[in-house]
Write a protein that binds this DNA or RNA. Structure first.
Length: 301
DNA sequence: GGCCAGGGGATTA
DNA sequence: TAATCCCATGGC
């Protein structure tokens, strides 16, 4: 994929070419991320937190897809490899879909509804906090909480695409807060979890937290679950969406619904072992197709 | 292992 | 106006 960064009125342009299995609606609306919003022209605008070269980079960005080329405008120059990794471009989703479709015609139909899904490689810290907020919560409210958190405690990124943008707050910032400091973010009982988990990440060291990626799935799961407020559901989301553990199969109320409707499975344990056996190492990706499929079905009849 | 409080807001009854 | 629901977890 050829790409170049061109400076243009303090906006940095990156293009990603020859994209396959890539649809913005599917990627940003399959429940994996909370900061991208759709514009009238079909492009998406959001704020992304990266960590590379041992430092944090919060960037406001807009991504527009035309045919098989995506154009990203961003407030900072982010290496194209970093964007490629974010959108998981090294992974051949065509092959994964081919393998999954062979399993049965139910997953085949689910894939048809969200063919352009890709699992983003999101920042591990941001994903931890985002999914702590997600528990027993709905997507519009999760987005509101994260927005409030960023507005109050994140780095101001200036105006971009008609709105003031704010970076995702960093561990040192959140770790120093009290529950009262967070009251206007309306996080409810999750505020305490966020503060405690932030302290735990600071104490273990950001590097060691990120290096959990190197551990095997079971060990990584236990490590993540050791953070305050992280149970099995949230741990699976964090592992899938930011630690590249693609076997992880998060089971929430939507997944319970789709697995009951489609596969007539009603117990969580049954769903778990079924997913492991049926989808194996692609469990997490199958989960995203199923999640998108049931949400589409419920929203559009 | 089962139960229930934890917050807050949108939606439904 | 009241009940229910939401990408759950901790503590008993």
């Amino acid at each position: 994929m050829v790409k170049e960064n061109v400076r243009e009125n303090t906006v940095y342009i990156t293009s990603l070419k020859n994209l396959k299995d890539f649809e913005l609606n599917h990627i940003f609306d399959c429940g994996q991320c909370f900061r991208w919003e759709k514009e009238e022209d079909g492009s998406y605008t959001g704020v992304v937190l990266f960590r590379y070269n041992e430092s944090w980079h919060n960037v406001a960005a807009n991504i527009k897809l035309k045919n098989s080329e995506a154009t990203i405008q961003a407030t900072k120059a982010i290496p194209v490899e970093v964007w490629e990794n974010y959108f998981d471009l090294k992974v051949d989703y065509g092959q994964i879909k081919y393998e999954l479709r062979l399993k049965d015609d139910k997953i085949d139909e689910a894939i048809n509804s969200g063919e352009g899904i890709r699992i983003l490689n999101q920042n591990k810290w941001e994903t931890l906090i985002s999914f702590l907020i997600s528990q027993n919560n709905n997507i519009p409210r999760i987005k509101g909480c994260i927005q409030a958190l960023s507005k109050n405690f994140g780095e101001p990124l200036g105006e971009f695409m008609g709105s003031e943008r704010f970076g995702f707050p960093l561990p040192e910032t959140l770790g120093k807060l009290t529950v009262e400091d967070l009251s206007e973010c309306k996080l409810g009982y999750r505020a305490g979890y966020i503060i405690e988990s932030s302290k735990q990440v600071i104490n273990m060291g950001v590097k060691e937290f990120f290096d959990i990626e190197e551990l095997d799935e079971m060990t990584a799961f236990e490590k993540i679950k050791g953070l305050k407020g992280v149970g099995p559901k949230v741990a699976h989301c964090i592992l899938l969406f930011s630690f590249k553990k693609r076997e992880s199969f998060p089971i929430d109320v939507w997944m319970k619904k789709v697995m009951a409707d489609v596969y007539d499975l009603n117990k969580e344990k049954e769903i778990e072992s079924f997913a492991k056996e049926k989808f194996g190492r692609n469990g997490g990706i199958a989960q995203q197709y199923l999640f998108y499929y049931i949400r589409e079905l419920e929203n559009n009849g």
